[in-house]
Nucleic acid binder design. Structure first.
Lengths: 235, 235
DNA sequence: CGATATATTATTGTTAGCAATTCAATGACC
DNA sequence: GGTCATTGAATTGCTAACAATAATATATCG
């Protein structure tokens, strides 16, 4: 009898690890609205874990800036204002530029081919009827880029920044009409990578983020004076 | 009677907050060696807090990559290898470039003057006899740069990266003879800021980090094959 | 001496409970 | 009727003690 199937799952991930993952996912999916309070008791019951464990997990999410701990009020889903969004996209620009530069330098032939294939997929989604599939493919594009760049620090930071703006991305799906432009910008990155021009790849990637930022920031109301935090749902 | 002194200290910082600060400081100061285990029981006794609280604090430090949680072995002080150091300095380069660029754009006249003053201080420390004072002034230089750049996301990331390489910085104090070069590189950043050339400021800052990286990486042994983790002390 | 079995130690996760604080609502008072 | 103090419910902050599991050291036996 073969021994290959006897591998038992050795510590498939600590309970705390799973809890953090699920909590993070729930926030990223928008199952908790920004600004919504997250009372420990409710979450403990919902996830079936003890308070101590939940509080440990919450500290980690707080360190990722996904939740904010308000003293004696408890954790609240973080919501970002326009200024934070500007800062995040500015940083994301240079990090994505760095990732593109390193991809042009370090990526293996297989990784390059994979990126080209995904780019072709993106072109296939030019028709507006398939706009819904774009996000998933675009995510794979970034995953491949980061993997090929072979710099885990950049990868970790980019993922973290991306998580923080997940609310905005969800809302920005309605913005249409920019896709042809997006494709041209991505092609510029790919062309630079194919040419082995790491500097050009970096500039093209920075430029792509810069242009996309405008679309994101347009979501914010015309910056009125009164900053009313958006938390009315689910209460 | 004046009302200015009546401000009571509202929540002077939760016990957990203080604990995290002290633990982080202890690691940054090198009071725990990289690779050293941090048993809960000992730390609880040392800091006089309960286990629950300590574990919450530890999760936050783990999220900052200052400690690593090994399943069923407990937290260990993170130690970085050459590859991680390269990645960190590469990211730090572009972030510091971004900070310099934004400083050239956004800093107030007072902030600019403060940066110039600190630069003058650095020049005053050219004599090798005062090498010990350089680190503190250099830290103030970066603090001022980040503050004037007015981008909290960049600031947070830079602080975090700096913390992660604190072990290396401590060891690199012995490297002498590069200070005149360092001053020239910093002057290039300052000149660009004075000229209002944000792009040049960015490039000068990136270049400065790039050159400093070589000195840091020289600390690593000539990458032998066997990767023996460095943990012998205090056991 | 070497391999296995055992005992000890340490971490993981849970539960219960008390103190401290916040927030909302009730009621008193002008 | 409106403002202010007080009460009370809800929630967090923190501690202590317990069971379960895995890693390590120790002892035992061949």
């Amino acid at each position: 009898m073969s021994l290959d199937d006897l591998k038992i799952e050795r510590a498939p991930l600590s309970l705390r690890g799973k809890l953090v993952e699920q909590l993070r996912l729930a926030i990223l999916e928008g199952r908790f609205a920004p600004g919504e309070r997250l009372p420990e008791s409710r979450l403990c019951e919902a996830f079936g874990v003890s308070r101590g464990l939940l509080r440990e997990a919450m500290q980690q999410l707080a360190a990722e800036d996904l939740v904010v701990n308000i003293p004696h009020r408890g954790p609240v889903v973080a919501s970002i204002d326009q200024r934070q969004a500007e800062e995040i996209y500015r940083v994301r620009g240079v990090l994505e530029g760095l990732a593109a530069e390193d991809f042009a330098r370090n990526a293996s032939p297989a990784q390059r081919q994979r990126l080209y294939d995904i780019t072709a997929e993106l072109h296939d989604l030019a028709d507006e009827s398939r706009a819904g599939e774009r996000v998933e493919v675009k995510n794979r594009f970034y995953e491949t880029l980061i993997e090929g760049a072979d710099n885990r620090v950049v990868g970790q930071f980019l993922v973290q920044l991306n998580n923080r703006v997940s609310q905005l991305r969800r809302l920005s799906l309605s913005v249409a009409g920019r896709y042809p432009e997006t494709l041209r910008e991505i092609d510029r990155i790919i062309d630079a990578i194919k040419a082995g021009d790491a500097t050009a790849a970096r500039e093209a990637a920075e430029d792509h983020v810069r242009r996309a930022t405008d679309v994101i920031l347009a979501q914010f109301p015309a910056s009125s004076s009164g900053e009313m935090p958006d938390q009315q749902k689910e209460e």
